[in-house]
């Protein structure tokens, strides 16, 4: 493995079997300094993915289980009075980790949700008047279970927009599942993963991503895609500029991950479903879940060249 990123992918794929595409997208998301929303049923390997990524990239890992009684303080941390020093001492919450897994984010109240989401957007938290920076890199993997809707608070569009990508892991293929059943328990494999990267090297890689060339012709393609979502009748609303920035950033990261220093339309197409799927709704069904069909339409009909 000449490329450390390829090595990372390879290592994660050893743990999470048969999910190469999703792992690659997750890595892309991380390289593009975006956050990831995974929608899937329990037990599909969401936590394993988070753990494995954290291990391989040499990042600190925290997991927050979201429940309806979770308070913002439980996420961000609180100041506790220290008798010895006679002062309030800040106890950082679980958010102060480099990779945070926010499990079942839709179970928490909007107040707690927005605490996390604000932190994600700003890269810092303000508690009791003091602004504290979050670690760098800072990567949130949030999960939600689309199947059970009872007692949940669905993320509003504005907050969905803050996730660079939304993924679904899906059931493993038969061969992968067989290997899973015959092999060792996944959790036991995790501690054995060797860190391949560390903060500095990851930050350096992340810094290289914006250097990937997006030529005029490619930007035109991105514009055509965005324009189509704004002008075609089947779209309930168009993509925001944040979305087009996200799309280009993700495409750069994807190209970078492929070892290329320029973006081609196929990079955009590869990340398009994950990047814009959760930002689009069909006009016929504006409260619906997603724009899968719309994304397919974009891929098919918008001229790529």
């Amino acid at each position: 493995m000449s490329n450390p990123l390829d090595a990372c992918l390879h290592a994660v794929n050893q743990v999470l079997l048969g999910k190469e595409a999703q792992v690659r997208l997750a890595m892309t998301c991380l390289l593009a300094r975006g956050h990831l929303l995974i929608e899937d049923l329990p037990g599909m390997g969401k936590t394993t993915l988070g753990h494995a990524l954290a291990r391989v990239l040499g990042l600190s890992f925290q997991r927050i289980q979201f429940t309806s009684d979770l308070l913002p303080g439980d996420i961000l941390g609180t100041s506790v009075f220290d008798k010895e020093s006679g002062q309030f001492v800040f106890h950082p919450g679980p958010i102060f980790a480099e990779l945070v897994l926010a499990d079942e984010i839709n179970r928490a109240t909007p107040k707690s949700q927005s605490a996390l989401l604000e932190a994600m957007e700003e890269g810092q938290v303000t508690i009791e008047g003091a602004t504290r920076p979050l670690p760098k890199p800072f990567f949130v993997i949030a999960t939600q279970n689309p199947a059970s809707q009872g007692g949940t608070f669905a993320l509003p569009e504005s907050q969905l927009d803050r996730f660079l990508m939304r993924l679904s892991l899906g059931y493993p293929a038969k061969a992968a599942e067989k290997a899973l059943l015959l092999g060792e328990a996944r959790r036991e494999l995790l501690p054995r993963l060797e860190p391949i990267l560390d903060h500095e090297r990851l930050a350096a890689l992340q810094a290289q991503v914006p250097q990937v060339r997006a030529s005029d012709a490619l930007v035109e393609y991105v514009l055509r895609l965005v324009e189509a979502t704004r002008s075609q009748p089947q779209f309930a609303w168009g993509l925001s500029p944040r979305a087009s920035l996200a799309l280009l950033a993700a495409a750069r990261a994807w190209a970078f991950l492929a070892g290329r220093d320029y973006v081609i339309p196929e990079d955009v197409q590869a990340v398009l479903p994950a990047v814009v799927g959760h930002r689009l709704r069909e006009r016929a069904d504006p409260a619906g879940h997603g724009g899968g069909a719309l994304v397919q339409w974009l891929l098919r009909e918008v001229p790529a060249l």
């Binding site: 012709a217 081609i264 339309p265 196929e266 197409q269 974009l298 891929l299 098919r300 009909e301 918008v302 001229p303 790529a304 060249l305």
Partner: peptide, 27 residues
């Protein structure tokens, strides 16, 4: 550059390979 690609496209179209509008050069 694009014109050459269009010629390339027409050439392949004559051999039965048609590019879909949303298809990039590589795919």
């Amino acid at each position: 550059c694009l014109r050459q690609f269009q010629r390339f496209e027409r050439l392949l179209a004559r051999h039965g390979v048609h590019r879909a509008p949303g298809e990039g050069a590589r795919s």
